[in-house]
Design a protein around this nucleic acid. Sequence first.
DNA 1: CATGAATGAGTGTTCATTCAT
DNA 2: CATGAATGAACACTCATTCAT
Lengths: 216, 216, 216, 216
Amino acid sequence: MSESLLTPKRERRKQQRPGELLEAALDLFVEKGFAATKSEEVAAKAGVSKGTLFLYFPSKEELFKAVVRENVVKTVKEGALEVANFKGSSAELLKTLMLEWWRRYGSTKASGITKLIISEGNHFPDLAAFYQEEVIDPATRMLKDILERGRATGEFLNFNTEHTTMVVIAPMLFLIMSKHANSLCISGSQETNPENFIAQHAELLVRGLSNSNSLC
Amino acid sequence: MSESLLTPKRERRKQQRPGELLEAALDLFVEKGFAATKSEEVAAKAGVSKGTLFLYFPSKEELFKAVVRENVVKTVKEGALEVANFKGSSAELLKTLMLEWWRRYGSTKASGITKLIISEGNHFPDLAAFYQEEVIDPATRMLKDILERGRATGEFLNFNTEHTTMVVIAPMLFLIMSKHANSLCISGSQETNPENFIAQHAELLVRGLSNSNSLC
Amino acid sequence: MSESLLTPKRERRKQQRPGELLEAALDLFVEKGFAATKSEEVAAKAGVSKGTLFLYFPSKEELFKAVVRENVVKTVKEGALEVANFKGSSAELLKTLMLEWWRRYGSTKASGITKLIISEGNHFPDLAAFYQEEVIDPATRMLKDILERGRATGEFLNFNTEHTTMVVIAPMLFLIMSKHANSLCISGSQETNPENFIAQHAELLVRGLSNSNSLC
Amino acid sequence: MSESLLTPKRERRKQQRPGELLEAALDLFVEKGFAATKSEEVAAKAGVSKGTLFLYFPSKEELFKAVVRENVVKTVKEGALEVANFKGSSAELLKTLMLEWWRRYGSTKASGITKLIISEGNHFPDLAAFYQEEVIDPATRMLKDILERGRATGEFLNFNTEHTTMVVIAPMLFLIMSKHANSLCISGSQETNPENFIAQHAELLVRGLSNSNSLC
DNA sequence: CATGAATGAGTGTTCATTCAT
DNA sequence: CATGAATGAACACTCATTCAT
């Protein structure tokens, strides 16, 4: 605590640099994509010189991975933790998760990463593999856990896991792609309230899955 | 048929050139994206020289537009025509349309264009605008027409058009993006039967929209 | 023959370009080394733009290999041919070879390649391997053939091949390194007549090797 | 020994620093060349920070000069001293010198400096000039002194000094270049015993120079 | 004395488009 | 009509040296 008082200016900057660079990188990657983002721009936006960027991140790809770790992996982990600690019904859990997912990720700048990786993944196989391993796989795992839990407690009917996973993910992906395809106006993306859309979808999904759907 | 007898070989080739170039271009654009496709490759694949390509298409962007006209706009127009001539119920029409859309477009090579435009549209605003005008707007228009027709006949309940449009489009988009994101393994995309998935979604959607849903 | 009269200007240039680039490259590689030679300089010296260089040679390394093939490998092959066709005694052959080697290679600009590869080979393993295979190995092979021939005819005494090879090569290498180490003044290199030096060394060597050395 | 008792640890380190840096620098310069050796690596190998290196040596070039002074100039001076004090015949002196030169320098790590200066001298004229003045000139002077001494005593015939100097130096240089051209396999360099080779050459040379060569 | 954060100049390679032939 | 030679702008990454702490 006294440290923060004593820490000299240079030192303080040093500890902030990675964060500043990461933030600048997130902004630019999301805005322009990976390939189109020039490392010098990132540095400039963070207020340092080109060389300094490479002092903290050995390459543009590593910079990107760090951005993903900071902004996506972290969110996935938090989600997994909440899932593990959730006390309510599986139906509630699923609905909560989908909505929170949108609130904490889909609606944020960081969701541009998802668009980026889908758009450019084919041209950067290393990044795609990294994302698959660090984000897609854990997230899918988490989803499956919820579904299995619901099935175990008898809450959910027997269902096709793959299909369900798709239905959970599809609307989020749709909204994210729409949001970041600035030059395109995919129907509804601009005027509809995404949160409502997600909530509705979640509700519909849960009903479909539930054992005792009192639709009538 | 008499044409082939009368037309000298050179002449015939000349008239086939654009088609051959368009086919080569479609393959490469879908496989590698717009930016990553080299015009020389397209020419080579069509069996002509680089210069010849620019003889038929004044630029790479115009080539792309021609590919879109040939492979996407055409499909949309066919769809609109069928919609106009369709005799059955609006519910049938909607279900038919969604399934046919997948069969005639989503499941074909040409659907890569959709992934391409979403992925790279931001970097090529002209192409995005062109696609918006020639594809997205007409397709959305067509969808709305169906919904309005259903409402007019009393088949469909009053609903949110934007929302419905999204629900119609989202699964198709999801499947298309999954299919063309080779380095990524988005859940379900590999093992699930897309046609079943679409059919199910269409069914669900129509039930939700319908006036007399005999769910109870 | 009529072709040369009809060949249009552009075409003629095209056939000359590789040669012009190769010559410019040789000059610059010898003058400044491999790493320090900028590809743009080579292009400029040949009177073309940077891009044109890469039209003819896919990379700087390939350009270098082409320079070696044109200026060194060729010479080695000519030497091997002459060795194979030589009619005189092995002693004469050896002396002739050493002197000719100097005249046709050591004393020319091209010998800078030898200095270059020894100087920079460690930093460009691919180039070193190429040179080893295309130049050093064949040249060594040729030398051994001569020695074996002399031994077979009874002209030469039994000797250590490795040692002899070194004695043949060392003075050439010494002269070449001296000649191209412009900033250094290794003794004798500037004023002594290299040809005399080589001739003397060859004479001495042959005497040492010969069966009937009439030194007494 | 009392020094270690009285000198405080920090103090001792301070006095050892230059030596440790010099040793690290020698290793790296020899292994990777001058340009390719990063000053940070040198510092790291010596266990200090980048800044500290520049505390002791104002620049990379000065560091190199210090390495030369420590590892080459010193050896030349020792050689000159021994030459001055040598009591035997000039022939013995020359043979001894050549062999000792190999033993004390050529066969050691330090001989990499010779390869380095020949390889990179053209790109670093200051270093080349320094080496010329501090090493080549004194060494050449020493050699000439021996030859003149031999001539003065009537031991040696009248000969061409330049030529003789070359013959003395050439084999050493050849062996050194071979030894440090790791990617290249110049004939004989690997299997032949360098010391024998040098000894033989020295013997041959002395015989050639001597007044009364009892070859017959 | 010692540290290590910051700098910024320098270069091989690609590719859409043109135009002389 | 068709060719293919030529162009030139654009971009990631390295490292010796400095100087605030």
